[in-house]
Amino acid sequence: MKIVYDGTLDPRQCKAVLGELIPAMAAEDPELIYLDADLMNCIGTAKWAAANPDRAINCGIAEANMVGVACGLASAGFKPIVHTFGPFASRRCYDQIFLSGGYAKNDITVIGTDPGVTATMNGGTHMPFEDVALYRALPGATVIDVSDPTMLISVLRQCKDRKGVKYIRVGRKQYARIYADGSELPVGKAVVLRGGTDAVIFAAGIMVHEALQAASILEAEGVSAAVLDMFTIKPLDVGAVEAWAKKTGAVVVAENHNRFGGLYSAVSEVLAERCPTPAACVAVEDEFGEVGPQGYLQQRFGLTAEHVAEAVRNVLKRK
């Protein structure tokens, strides 16, 4: 794993990555089976799916059934990868995920695209700020908020063969490039993207880029902020949280999600039990989403580098 972040975008759109990755993984593993709910064209799998009807099952606009079918396929010996937009991959089929998947021990991987503000023009109805909270509450689940395309490739490959229900939230468009091509990001292990001594920013998903930008802003002010990529929200890298909270004495969590139930909650649980530390979050303040371009939405919901920097300045006053 090599960090190559310089603030520029990775040229690949994540939908294009998925459109190549899922067929490639299917070619490598005869037990992989891909299910979608009428959104194959949104991640570039439709053409391959049409030519491979035994490997790609279009379940129509019926997410609850799709999840149940995937779980039945898992019991028959397959490794299902299920895709739909984040809200429909979580709250729309939660009881099926919970019982047919988790409780019944049918191992499936769920990709929920366009989490939080990345849902942009689809608006508030399609903008999940609660999907991480729902999946975190499922015993044994793995919950991942992807921060760049290279990570997407690495974690999807790992999740395919991992036990339990795995939920991967990822936007379909471009991300800042953080990791060198071919990097492996072990699930469950936080990545230290930048060291620091005054505060630590635990970030996930699109907020990793914002956190790194914030650290640069703060550096110019003489504040040394560490940034960790906490892409695995469950199981959380508890050791990394504890170590960096103790090392810096000030914590900010940045996430594209409601402040309740996501990464901020997960980090706070660790701090409360192991090392009480002044902490704050940059997250959605218990609101529903709305329509607009991503830049507007990040401003609207307070999810920019400047918001992260301000949160760090404020938490430092409480040290």
């Binding site: 039945g72 396929l73 019991s75 049918n106």
Partner: peptide
């Protein structure tokens, strides 16, 4: 929920 599970099991056996 058993209905979708059964459909998936039947599809899996077929495949």
């Amino acid at each position: 929920q058993g209905t979708s599970l059964a459909a998936g099991m039947a599809l899996g056996d077929k495949l």
